[in-house]
Amino acid sequence: MSEERYSVARLDEMPRKGRGNWAQIRAHFGIEAFGVNAWTGDEGDTVINDHNEEGSGQQELYYVVSGRATFTVDGEEVDAPAGTFVYPDDPARQRTAVAAEAGTTVLALGGKPGEAYRTLGWEWTSEAFPFFGEERYQEAYDVLAAAEREHPDMPGVLYNLACAEARLGKTDEAVAHLARAIELYPAFTKLARDDPDFDSIRDHPSLSIA
């Protein structure tokens, strides 16, 4: 089978990563036109993390492939058995989902009207988080530096890149990226203040997070 023109995989055999047992469908196939991922969990597990898409402006559609999930969208709770499509009517809606049965899988699709699809920064940061947990900062840096090349103005990517750089002693780069992240998203000031990743640069004169 040609891997270039088309490819085939089973959802339950796809490599899984991180919290929520994440199947990176888009990345697995190299899909470039829209976002698509799946998360699997047992009863009580978060299968869609608590977030909104105000920053990305992306429309997201969720489809419960198996099991049963409880969605909460802007405080409104929705029971979603297998076969249910859940579509928040505005990217700004806060949404999350928790598995209500063992083996619940939720598919998430995304894209922004009026703009060509671009990989979102969270795909990269989520990939880097396990490396932080294992103190493998160089590997976290490699992932995030690649993300920064693709998303030079994505605050979350810049913030986490700064974390890795600070841990690796790349002080100037860490300070520059953290300052830029805060400029783009001022709420990061508070987060950085207590983030142990920044212990080595917290008192740097170019920053005002101490």
């Binding site: 409104e76 979603a80 058995p81 499509f85 859940v86 949404r95």
Partner: peptide
């Protein structure tokens, strides 16, 4: 309602 819901069926 802040969310649209439907099912395959």
């Amino acid at each position: 309602m802040s969310v649209h819901l439907t099912t395959l069926d």
